[in-house]
Amino acid sequence: MLRYSLKRLFSLMISLAVASLVIFSVVEIAPGDPASYMLGVNAQPDTVAALRAELGLDVSRPERYLSWVAGMLQGDFGTSYTYRTPVAEMVKDRLWVSLPLALYALTLSTLIAFPAGIFAASRRGKTGDVVVMGSTQLGIAIPNFWFAMILVLIFAINLRWFSAGGFVGWENGIWAGLHSLTLPAIALALPQASILARVMRSSLLDILGEDFMRTARAKGLTRKQALWRHGLRNALIPVLTIIGLQFSFLLAGSIIIEQVFYLPGLGRLVFQAISARDLIVVESVVMLLVFAVIVVNFVVDLAYAVVDPRLRTRT
């Protein structure tokens, strides 16, 4: 187990190093100099030079990369070109919107997908299965930002159960906060729940054909008992993988959904930074998101090894 974890940890480090290099290089080859962009076309060359020095743009690329990485390791994400505030602080505030939103959506998706998948698998080929699988096809085809708009139209504009956008802030209580994240979370969760339900169903169907399930039935368990006691646990491994992968879809998806609901999350921060060509913010937020995804996948990998000892010896 220790060897397996160390091996995984090593590849995690490499992934992070390569990811940071790629992101840094992409931003580096961006056309245009941030300093001259900020000061406008009429700026004096010496003013531009002074600002370049202030922003740390006058040193060589490798030096800049190292100081960017070293800074991030200490929680310093640089200073925003436009706001002149530390990026870390801007990110921290926004994270309190985006992260709960992604987790909320993940919870909803799991809560919908598990019963739906189990139900469909237990009614294989019958009407119930066909209806659930048909709905998941539709759920996958629906763009989440469009679904979000329709939710706003129905539940915010017509029924007035929720507000159409904005975030009340956690200082107004946890329920008020969750309430204003409910529509965005539903919009995010729908396609993910559809995918997860399909994985849950096919994984369960695979397990139902296994010998140990036949043994379980032979020793006198009913179909249902066998499914709950032996089937479900074994079917969970592929499902866990998908949940891990979905975290990245949810984080990325929340960037677009935040635009629909005017939520002050990381997504809005990124788009504001893009339109202001505040590349240090874009660079740092993207790195943070990639970091989160890589680390979550690492944790999921370790989680399987705990759940399934067979995996520890493989690779």
Binding site: L251, A252, V286, L289, V290, V293
Partner: peptide, 8 residues
């Protein structure tokens, strides 16, 4: 996350 990189 593909969308994040697409955005970058």
């Amino acid at each position: 996350p593909s969308l994040v990189i697409a955005i970058l």
